[in-house]
């Protein structure tokens, strides 16, 4: 059997910018106020009445070849075989190179702890077979999460049948959040 490959799909047409994902993440992971592990990009076009608004949630892309992991001098930033990019706080010296090196600005410095922080796909929940908090809480089902290597999963089906794009592929990081068209 293939190893797991956790993957997040985002159907941004469904997003209504309610920010429940941000709140759920903050509650689940004790994210301090003033910082957020995820955010929602807003795009507004046109003039009334011919207008459109688009919302696109974003967070750590858990890249295929993450630059944060590459530049880390101690190996504190690492990528698990199941695709999740994590930070081993005990090894981190707090140089913040990873924060500077992330093309998505997905990391921020926890001033109180002296280490960077970012989305972990709620790795502690994955252990129990539960989806990340943002995925579970999203009221309009924007987020589809699962194992891309499991052919019976919804993400695998979506990746095979739907068109999608990724953010800033030109940076060469191989981002792994797929935005459905």
């Amino acid at each position: 059997m293939l190893k797991k490959k956790y993957t997040l799909l985002i159907d941004s047409k469904r997003c209504i910018n309610c920010k429940a994902c941000i709140v759920a993440c903050r509650a689940e992971n004790n994210v301090p106020l003033g910082h957020s592990r995820l955010w929602i990009n807003e795009e507004h076009r046109g003039e009334w009445p011919k207008i459109s608004s688009n919302f696109e949630p974003e967070q750590c892309h858990h890249c295929e070849s993450p630059s944060c992991v590459r530049v880390c001098p101690t190996g504190a930033s690492y990528k698990r075989p199941d695709g999740v990019v994590l930070i081993n706080a005990k090894e981190c010296v707090g140089c913040r190179y990873c924060i500077v090196a992330c093309p998505y600005n997905a990391r921020f410095a926890r001033e109180d702890l002296g280490i960077p922080e970012k989305c972990t796909y709620c790795a502690h929940r994955l252990e129990h077979g539960e989806p990340p908090a943002c995925v579970e809480t999203c009221p309009t089902k924007v987020r589809i999460f699962g194992d891309a290597n499991d052919p019976n999963s919804l993400v695998a089906e979506m990746l095979n049948t739907r068109q999608y794009r990724v953010h800033k592929p030109e940076t060469g990081n191989g981002p792994r959040i797929f935005y459905l068209r």
Binding site: V71, V93, C95
Partner: peptide, 26 residues
């Protein structure tokens, strides 16, 4: 002293990562 965890700076010298310019630089 610019490090977030300056007391762990010695960890820079417990690792050598050829991919990381900071590791080589240290």
């Amino acid at each position: 002293f610019d490090l977030g965890n300056w007391q762990r700076f010695y960890k820079l010298f417990l690792h050598f990562r050829i991919e990381s310019p900071m590791s080589i630089g240290s």
